[in-house]
Amino acid sequence: MLKSLDPRVTRLNLPDGEVPPMEEKPELDQFETYEAFHQKKDGAAHTYVGPVHAPNEDVAFLFAKEQYSRRFPCVGLWIARTENIQVTPYGNDGENVYDMLRIEETAEQIEQPEPYEIFHLKKRGKAHTHAGRVMATSYLNALQEAKQAFGEKSPIVNVWVVKSKDVLQSAEDDKDMWTTVPEKKYREAIAYKVMDKITKYKEERKNTPAQ
């Protein structure tokens, strides 16, 4: 049995010595991915923070809350399944990707328009930010609408489009889930007054003859 300095590890009764390799993990062992967007303060646009792996939207929300809003001010969180987000090609920095896209007119608009959320990336390496919502009958149509509504403010190097119904959005009432964040001072660098301790130590040492 594997003996560790940590008694809890020893109690796991793990085999010691050579072990056969672990079997390859099956596909989707780590689930599918979701993309998370946070809102730093009231009125601010939701900004992309990164992906999470989760079995469903609700768990994705919990994981994203833990992963992306545990340490920084946050008042809102949106979650969308990666698969439901459509992405334009990336332009060069300084370019406006709407100008490069050939967005063909859709022949007939038979379907009822529904809301879509539009996210813009202003510069490579930065984060996609919510530009706004448009009513459209398809992803492509949403892109057309977005170009008219917010496409003029160049540069925009990349656009993400997702149906509003595919975005899980935290509600106004949920905001209190983040209220304890600022209380946890012990995880802020500023809570550690190291210099004071060092100065005090040096002072004391100056006053006592060398041992």
Partner: peptide
């Protein structure tokens, strides 16, 4: 636990960015 939670319709796509 992960197997029990897995949605049979889940489909893997690479994260976006």
């Amino acid at each position: 636990v992960r197997r029990a939670l897995l949605n049979p319709k889940a489909k893997y796509v690479r994260p976006l960015a």
